[in-house]
Design a protein around this nucleic acid. Structure first.
Length: 118
RNA sequence: AGAACAGGUUGGGCGGUCGCUGCUGGCAUCUCAAAUCGUCAGUUUUCGGAUUCAUCUGAAAUACCAGACUUGAGUUACCCAGGAGAGGAAAGUCCGAACACUACAGGGCAGCGAGCCCGCUAACGGCGGGGCGUUCGAGCAAUCGGACGACGACAAGUGCAACAGAGAACAGACCAGCCACGCUCUUGAGAUUUCUUUUGAGAUCUCAAUAGAAUCGCGGAUUGAGAGAUUCGGGAUUCGAACGCGCGGUGAUGGGUGAAACGGUGCGGCCCUUCGGGGCUUAAAGUAAGAGCGCACCGGCGUAUGUGGUGACAUAUACGGCCAGGCAAACUCCUCGCAGUGCAAGAUCAAAUAGGGAGGCGUCACCAGGGCUGCCCGCCCGAAUCCCGAUACAUCGGGAUACGACCUCCGGGUAGAUCGCUUGAUCCAAUCUGGCAACAGUUGGACUAGAUGAAUGAUCGCCACUCCGGUCUCAGUUUUCAGAUCUCAGAUUUGGGAUCUCAAAUUUGAGAUUUGAAAUCUGAGAUCGGAGAACAGAAUUCGGCUUAUAGACCUGUUCUCUUU
RNA sequence: GGGGCUGUAGCUUAGUUGGCCAAAAGCGCUGCACUGUCGAUGCAGAGAUCGCGAGUUCAAAUCUCGUCAGUCCCG
């Protein structure tokens, strides 16, 4: 079902070849993976987010967001590898705000998809 | 009562929905075992029946085979159910241990660390109690209380101390002081005394004057930015065989410096002398002046002994002992301790088109071998086979080709998996026991995260806490308006007697009390809405230390206000 | 898990065998002069309690301990 990106090589591949989408709470790197499912990788660095408590909360919020909004990914044509970087303001927000941001990102990805098909 | 600071305790509660990671139970499956000599199915054999030869069917077998059912044990995917799931610091990684592997005869050097005493503890640089020191406060004092202390040795050696000051570590000598010697060293009068026959000479003292000197004012000149320096004139006081000048000695009495100046006080007599010393008294008898010399006392230190204390230490006495400054968070010395690496330690299992060793009955494939560095790669010599070229078909030249596949066994080991991994120097309770306490014991109870690219989350509701705002109720303060009562003042009317006074009534103004209404403020309660709620996330496990921390509660100190 | 380095004016640095350091320099800042104005130049000035807290010493930026922050390295 849902899978996570683990190794450093997976992340580097997405950073290098994927597309970047910025929002106020997170930054997403997206790369089509030709698999039967979407995969998620989360980063919350000490430099970007803060201490361990903040980083834990950021990671959990992003994971919860991905879990709750799995349905919106069904509308996409392909499956992707997602790498989401948390930003400093993220831990002080509620999960609803994160979901809103994430859906905007998904919409942009879908937009891109349609454009490339045409 | 409030505020600030410091220390300690605590570190919100209940429930719903979705999700994550272990655990427990249930279940398909799978594995193993057992027994029923169980049941069903299949195969084979024998016998019988039916039928068309095929075939179907019934019975039997200590027969064979292995499947299902039963029971037990183990195992696990999904699913279901149950139950659990971050901290007082999980942090910093500053100490101490457990545990694991590696190394290790014993000893030393080097390096690092610890360093008042006793106790607690598995251990500690931690904790408890005590001693000593510094400092602050209280008190007349004895003493008491708080804070701090890396608290062995500078009386083994080496080293360091700016500035100031004469001198800063085998001390020193600037000025003043003291002592001796030399130089300048006038005149008159008087007194005393010595020598001399006398004149006279010398010494000491007093008075006066003067050359000169010192000190203190005043005025001028030169120089200088100034402060001041030099010099001249004149005055006062003092000295005048020195209180001047010079050359020495003495030694720390004073000046002054500094954080620090080598502990302080007192005494050192009399007589003789050939000047070396001797005698008497004395506790002891130095000089020109003196001392670091002699003696005594006080103070401090050290050592020894006694007493008290487990001990650090305290206290007393003695010394043919000493006077020694500070700094070892300067080098150093002394005593004691320390092997190294850290759960990515380490243990077990163990994939592959990776890879080591040994063997091979048989099968497939291949074919001598040697050297250059032990292996691999590579290169060289060389045999054989194949290909190409030349050719007299003898041969010559060039090129190519091999060290296995497969099977069996053994050993290592990467990815990965499992274990280590959470029941432990554990936690909780007790008006229990021992101990001043740290702590230990006893009894009873509890099981309380185990992740590994790393779970412990998201969200909602209610209650509790704090703050802000609104509404209502109650209490109080102040103001305004209205009414009532009382007091005072004035005016009018009436009556009594005398232009005045008394009494009654009406009215106006002021003040006080009280009632009601409104507004404002304060406090309490109820209710509604909004906001806030710290520091911070386990990574092998414990014991400490340190640091961060909203709110609440407790304790202490300081300050302010109120009441008595 | 283990180990090292750094912290001094607004910025960049010096000073770290304790002492004339109550801390130096450059850039920057302020004022004045110069100029019609700005720049440049000249003169003058301000700006630090040496990350923080203790201790040792007569004396600490310097020595010691603790602590905070930053940064680097190894596995």
């Amino acid at each position: 079902m849902k899978a996570y990106l683990r190794g450093s090589q997976d992340f580097q591949k997405v950073y290098k070849h994927g597309k970047r989408y910025d929002s106020s709470l997170m930054t997403a790197f997206v790369l089509p993976n030709r698999l039967s499912q979407d995969r998620l990788g989360i980063t919350a660095s000490r430099k970007a987010v803060g201490n361990a408590v903040q980083r834990n909360r950021a990671r959990r919020l992003l994971r919860e967001t991905f879990r709750l909004r799995k349905s919106s990914l069904v509308g996409l044509q392909e499956h992707y590898d997602w790498v989401i970087n948390a930003k400093r303001r993220l831990p002080s927000f509620k999960v609803t705000a994160a979901i809103e941001e994430f859906e905007k990102l998904v919409a942009r990805v879908a937009n891109e998809e349609n454009k490339s098909r045409d």
